[in-house]
C-alpha cells in the first residue's frame, strides 16, 4: 500500500505531531505511523475520526485518483 502523504500534509497544516493526532483519534502512535506509511489500512470509523480531527474529507485524505488506462473504472481507496 502506498504512503499516505495527505495525512502528513494535513497534520502539518494543523501543526500537529503524529503523537498528538494519534491521541486525538484514540490510537497508538505506532498505528498512526503505520497508517501514514501505508502499512495499515484503517477501518472507515478510524478514517472518519482522522478526517474529523484534521478537518478534511475522506476523499481528501484517503482517496487516490483513478489511474489512466484502468480497465475496471473503479477508484481505489488507499
Amino acid at each position: 500500500m502506498a504512503r499516505n502523504i495527505a495525512i502528513k500534509v494535513a497534520r502539518a497544516e494543523k501543526d500537529m505531531t503524529q503523537t498528538a493526532l494519534a491521541k486525538a483519534v484514540g490510537v497508538s502512535r505506532q498505528t498512526m505511523n503505520a497508517i501514514e506509511q501505508g502499512d495499515y489500512n484503517p477501518t472507515i470509523k478510524l478514517c472518519r475520526a482522522i478526517c474529523r480531527v484534521l478537518g478534511k474529507t475522506l476523499d481528501e485524505l484517503f482517496w487516490i485518483d483513478e489511474e489512466p488506462g484502468s480497465s475496471d473504472g473503479n477508484s481505489e481507496r488507499r
Partner: peptide
C-alpha cells in the same frame, strides 16, 4: 468499545 477509550488496545493492535 469506544475507539476514544485510551485505556484499551486500538484496532490495529487488536
Amino acid at each position: 468499545m469506544s475507539m476514544m477509550n485510551n485505556k484499551n488496545f486500538d484496532e490495529r493492535q487488536i
